[in-house]
């Protein structure tokens, strides 16, 4: 049983590594995230539970982004931006799941600022 568990864990780790290596930061994905954050902001403003799923989706994206930048030279501060965005998206999800939409709105505000700060550095203007 233990062998099966270890095998499964290794498999998942390898799969995660491959997925991380395959992940690319595309303009389409970023536009998708911009759209998602607008949905998220709207769901939170309207106090809709769908906000949690949108926030979880963003958290998952930023987690991949963090791993991607961690493996990319010369983007050290991007790792920090992605990590912060990941944490904030998690906070939004938790606040929504706890029914605290005011806290969720504050975290969405911080999340959009985090996105903007990173874009100020990394997006060609």
């Amino acid at each position: 049983m233990r062998k099966v568990f270890v095998f499964a864990a290794l498999h998942l780790a390898l799969l995660g590594g491959v997925m991380s290596a395959q992940f690319e930061v595309s303009a389409d994905d970023m536009r998708e995230m911009e759209d998602t954050v607008r949905d998220l902001d709207s769901h939170v403003a309207l106090k809709e539970k769908e906000a949690a799923a949108a926030a979880r989706g963003m958290a998952a994206y930023f987690q991949k982004l963090e791993a991607h930048y961690a493996a990319t030279p010369a983007t050290a501060d991007a790792v920090g931006f992605a990590r912060k965005s990941h944490e904030l998206a998690d906070q939004v999800a938790k606040a929504v799941e706890g029914g605290d939409f005011e806290a969720a709105a504050d975290s969405v505000g911080q999340l959009t600022r985090s996105c903007k700060t990173c874009h100020d550095v990394y997006k060609n203007k």
């Binding site: 954050v37 709207s42 403003a45 959009t112 600022r113």
Partner: peptide
């Protein structure tokens, strides 16, 4: 979608 004057930004 709930739209705001400053979109999702603004402080």
């Amino acid at each position: 979608r709930a739209e705001k004057a400053t979109t999702v930004f603004g402080e």
